[in-house]
Write a protein that binds this DNA or RNA. Structure first.
Lengths: 339, 339
DNA sequence: ACAAGGATGACAAGCGATTGCCAAAAATTG
DNA sequence: CAATTTTTGGCAATCGCTTGTCATCCTTGT
């Protein structure tokens, strides 16, 4: 006589319970649920019914154990509270969910060490990684990329597949805008030294200003937070520039506050251009001229690139590089140069 | 002769590899790593060395399989891009990380259905849930709470352990503030109908205004987004009130923008009080008077409550209710009533 | 020096699913 | 109607780790 397993009340139903209820073997249940073609139509329906009746959900742990996959992707961002990442996170989540994956969000607190650590520790629990604005060195990144599938956002495409937001081209637009307003003394307010985006922006700034023969200054590095804005504003003012291109909006908004405190009018005395068009850029005072791009889409594309790598069978053309277009959004923080 | 397992290059080291290298049984390795007291000191060191040498990380999947636990907690928020949740997310993440747990972030998109769905689907993959500003009905919530450990944030404490942010008391402070500025016609701008916080805030507003014999109005419900601010502002203006207490800052900031567009001066013509003191409340125009509270701490406390439930052995006094203090932060969006 | 008690670590049975292999059943063909 | 092919579904091994059981060895106390 088969031993009747007494189902304790709190226990989760297993594949065995389903098999028993449907009167088939567990392997048949497994196949019916994950490989429908392999099982008779009516049997499958019976199994599905039994599963529904028991409210059965397969254990992703057990499933992963044999397959070695977790159906999970980790998304690493330097600072969860930086609004720039919201849309990346949300875009990634959408795309992952659609593909049946789960998102693991990790805040690396702007630290390369924490980032490397998370990458190691989660090696087993995630099938792949999305690194937004990684703070790793090229060497660290290359090592990580060799160990596990990953896609970076805003990072040199040489090392791993990447989605880059084309702010350098927006910087050119921004300079054009400032020049057309009569500015000739322009200051670049730099972000974190370990940020690749910052390097690219600075590079674009330098090239374009040299070509246009503008007088330039640079200050920084500053942490990408509003609280760093005060120091940044003071430093920028000290250079004597009449306009600033700022590493990102967080910093730019902080500068706006400080300039107001000091009685320096924006844009009358000083024009400010931010970068990223984050939440808040439209309602700060004055509203910030900034460089906008489809950030949520960047998150989505990054996930697509990763998934096509993880599942080559479905994957289309697994590109190594996607570039998100950027455009300048002019608001009230830029104006004619003081005469 | 023992068969020598050939280690394929990409394979992850298993407990077996460690055991072999250290010259002990796998069970010893397991105990050495997770139950140190049970294993000889020097053996343990040898094992740890072997593990480090192989760069061994235990598979959380396999570990969870036998224990039935995942060391994972899911955090459900209605809208990832609402800055109010940032600090909750971050607080939760900190606390979870400290306890060796992993955070699964889920955006339920303001939908009770998605929330219930996530709760079901992730039953097996999370040990517990944190529900921030749940949109579930009481019945749904009770059902979910019966099935799995969960802690809510800003929700009736009767059903499940809860962390509430004491905005009702702040509403009283806000009313006092407005009254002292000479306002007598005050409008409550409501948030989502399914939001428990909204109900509580409305209730506190009603009680206090009745007691003070103020003339009140209410408009809403509005979605808690800046884009709903225009409609909210128009409706509020239409009531003839001279001051508004607004469900949350997002909505309040949206109203500020609309009022400015319409040439209605804040605070000269209309005072606005928001709620939550989110990112942006300090730099919008004018800076928003709002009710602040230690949100990050709320996230941390919620996690503590959940973990003490999951691990009763460590857990202190597993409280069912924690109340976060709130205070009014006066900025420039409130002023004397128009005469 | 010997018995009692403790500490240690090996063995093996699961945990819940997947999957290769193969037998039974059904469908097709000559 | 028998022979052959195809479909279907059961058995059992396996994934990596935990843990109960138990033999062995080392301490102690007398």
């Amino acid at each position: 006589m088969a031993e009747l397993q007494l189902q304790s009340p709190g226990r989760q139903p297993t594949i065995r319970d389903v098999a028993e209820l449907a009167g088939v073997a567990t392997s048949t249940v497994s196949r019916a649920l994950s490989n429908p073609g392999r099982v008779n139509h009516v049997t499958r329906e019976r199994i599905e019914e039994a599963a529904a009746q028991l409210n059965y959900i397969p254990s992703s742990q057990a499933r992963g154990l044999s397959s070695g996959r977790t159906q999970t992707v980790a998304v690493l961002v330097p600072d969860i509270t930086n609004p720039f990442y919201f849309d990346i996170i949300r875009g990634a989540q959408h795309q992952l969910k659609a593909a049946g994956y789960t998102q693991l969000l990790v805040d690396t607190e702007e630290s390369a060490e924490m980032e490397a650590d998370a990458l190691q520790k989660m090696r087993r629990s995630a099938d792949g990684f999305i690194l937004a604005a990684s703070r790793l060195t090229d060497a660290q990144l290359a090592e990580a990329a060799a160990q596990q599938p990953l896609v970076t956002i805003n990072r040199a495409p040489a090392i791993a597949p990447t989605v880059v937001i084309d702010t350098p081209s927006a910087i050119i637009q921004a300079l054009e805008h400032l020049v057309s307003l009569g500015h000739t003394r322009i200051c670049f307010v730099g972000g974190p030294a370990t940020s690749w985006s910052n390097a690219k922006r600075w590079q674009a700034f330098q090239e374009e200003t040299t070509e246009r023969k503008l007088t330039t200054f640079s200050v920084g590095p500053f942490a990408p937070k509003t609280t760093s804005g005060a120091a940044a504003a003071d430093a920028a003012v000290h250079t004597g520039a009449t306009a600033c291109i700022v590493f990102n909006d967080l910093l730019a908004i902080g500068m706006l506050q400080r300039l107001r405190e000091r009685g320096i009018r924006v844009p009358d005395d000083m024009s400010i251009v931010g970068c990223d068009d984050i939440f808040g850029a439209d309602f700060c005072n004055p509203p910030l001229t900034t460089m906008a791009s489809p950030i949520e889409q960047a998150g989505r594309v990054a996930v697509s690139m990763l998934l096509s790598r993880l599942n080559p069978q479905y994957g289309g053309t697994s590109r190594r590089l996607a570039v998100m277009p950027t455009h300048l959004t002019v608001r009230a923080s830029t104006g004619a140069a003081p005469s």
